[in-house]
Computed example of a mutant assay.
Amino acid sequence: MTDALLDPRPSTLDRAAFVRQFGDVYEHSPWIAEQAWDIGLDARHDTPAGLADALAAVLDAADTERQLAVIRAHPDLAGKAAKSGALTADSTREQAGAGLDQCSEAEYERFHRYNDAYKARFGFPFVMAVKGSDRHRILAAFEQRLEHTPDEERRTAIEQIHRIALLRLNDRVTR
């Protein structure tokens, strides 16, 4: 999949078209696409993996506060926004694909407890690339990651956000 070309090819787009097409890859953070375009794109960035690398480099180079803002732009998993239909289309598909829209009331309660405990400990929501996972594995990841230090968890959240971006770009090849 990573050898397939994105259509339209990122390297052929002007800045406005590029941001329209790829500005939503990082949740509510179009500045990442803007900066990637400003740095420069070429044919290497026309594949999902190539573009994901360029976008990831922008976020990795950002200061801690900007990284935290990107993490905080993500919704709680199986949270109120999901139940009310307020998620982005990508987040809705991703959470539904992991079965989070089919939680029992007891599971929703468990997600809420973990979401609250996680945010109290780290100051940002739990972020996980849930595509290909299920609610049981996600809940287990919550338990494990609650043991991280704040720095470890910020780095883990950024890694997961990069994974989400790559998965979203791969999905755009098949659309």
Rank of each mutant, 00 (worst) to 15 (best):
R72Y: 02
R72A: 12
A73W: 04
A73Q: 03
A73T: 02
A73F: 12
H74E: 15
H74G: 02
H74Y: 05
H74P: 01
H74I: 05
P75H: 03
P75Q: 06
P75Y: 00
D76H: 12
D76I: 01
L77S: 02
L77I: 11
A78S: 07
A78M: 02
G79K: 02
A81I: 05
A81C: 04
A81W: 01
A81F: 01
A82E: 12
A82T: 06
A82P: 04
A82R: 03
K83E: 15
K83S: 14
K83N: 07
S84I: 15
S84K: 14
S84W: 07
A86S: 14
A86V: 06
L87P: 00
T88V: 02
T88A: 11
A89K: 09
A89R: 13
D90Y: 12
D90R: 12
S91N: 15
S91W: 07
S91A: 14
T92L: 13
R93I: 08
R93S: 09
R93H: 11
R93A: 08
E94H: 02
Q95H: 04
Q95I: 02
G97K: 01
G97T: 08
A98C: 05
A98M: 01
G99R: 05
G99I: 00
L100M: 15
D101Y: 06
Q102P: 02
Q102Y: 03
C103P: 05
C103W: 03
S104W: 00
S104T: 15
A106R: 07
E107P: 01
E107D: 06
Y108H: 13
Y108T: 09
Y108M: 14
Y108D: 12
Y108N: 12
E109H: 13
E109V: 07
R110K: 07
F111L: 13
H112Y: 06
H112F: 10
R113L: 07
R113M: 06
N115C: 07
N115I: 00
N115L: 00
D116L: 15
